[in-house]
């Protein structure tokens, strides 16, 4: 089989079974941070054991292997259609091998044909770069955390949120409060301030491609990220919503321009089982370097 096909299966396998190092560090810190003999501590211990077991057995970290989201940076002239065809074949094969659950359902008929292939499944985001090689990032985003995402249109009277950073802060914290433990916390927030209803959510998800311990280049947003992270952890929602010290492992925020009439804040929630990996590929499609 061609190298690209095998490389993509390996990226899918690794994303499904192995938590990225930056997230694992966050989880270990959260484990340390919970009080002994609490159900929150016990939850974090099970989570830590699960991470080890999934890697060792090369099996899905979480049974909901989620929406399959490819982010592909490719040089000018690269055949994106051929990449997509190969990726669809790799997704089908990875499903057969049990790295992905049969997870794609026809919304009208309710049928699940078991292939994970269909309209919008998997999803591809292609971007052109001036670099010679292809970079593939993959996010597998489960439905539980996707369901607690939220989009706010400011001003919001109920939350007393105006069109400024304090208003953004209020609605983002509201999203955390509404999510409670339902998104499998401790979670990570990806936020986009601005954009339209579609690009706002899309850009909020690209925040999950950032390293958990990176620093936002925009000082105002960096401060907002830290503030929301710290405030959320005071709420006492804790792992799984059991009560406890760690409600969030991280917050990543970006801004995008908006039209004068609209002011959206789009919040995507990622569960602790944060499945994201990526690799650089050479011209033949072989993996040359892992990113995370």
């Amino acid at each position: 089989m061609e190298p690209l096909f095998e490389s993509l299966i390996e990226i899918i396998r690794r994303t499904s079974a192995e938590i990225p190092d930056d997230v694992q560090r966050g989880i270990l810190a959260a484990l340390e941070n919970e009080k002994q003999d609490t159900i929150a501590k016990n939850a974090m211990e099970i989570i830590e054991r699960n991470i080890g077991l999934a890697k060792e057995k090369s099996q899905p970290l979480c049974q909901d292997t989620g929406s399959v989201l490819f982010y592909v940076d490719c040089p000018v002239g690269y055949d994106q259609m051929e990449f997509a065809d190969t990726a669809r074949a790799a997704v089908t094969e990875a499903t057969k091998r049990g790295f992905l659950r049969q997870n794609s359902v026809d919304s009208l008929t309710g049928k699940n044909d078991g292939t994970n292939i269909g309209p919008g499944s998997p999803t591809f985001h292609f971007h052109q770069t001036r670099e010679a090689n292809v970079t593939v990032r993959l996010v597998l985003k489960g439905g539980g955390c996707e369901n607690v995402g939220a989009q706010y249109s400011l001003p919001n009277i109920k939350l007393n949120a105006n069109r400024d950073l304090d208003g953004c802060r209020k609605v983002i914290l509201d999203a955390v409060q509404q999510a409670q433990g339902k998104g499998c916390g401790p979670g990570i927030l990806g936020v986009c301030i601005g954009g339209d209803r579609a690009t706002g959510y899309e850009l909020s998800k690209t925040q999950f491609l950032r390293n958990l311990d990176d620093e936002n280049e925009n000082a105002e947003l960096a401060a907002l990220e830290t503030d929301i992270h710290n405030t959320a952890n005071k709420l006492g929602i804790g792992p799984m919503g059991f009560g406890g010290n760690t409600t969030l492992l991280g917050v990543k925020i970006r801004a995008a321009n908006r039209v004068p009439a609209s002011y959206f804040v789009s919040v995507s929630y990622m569960c602790w089982a944060f499945r994201r990996h990526g690799a650089k590929l050479d011209g033949a499609g072989e993996i040359t370097e892992w990113i995370y």
Binding site: N50, L53, Q59, P60, C62, M240
Partner: peptide, 13 residues
Amino acid sequence: LHAIGGAAQVLAE
């Protein structure tokens, strides 16, 4: 009864 969300491997055991 609340099981640990995401702990698919521990629970499968």
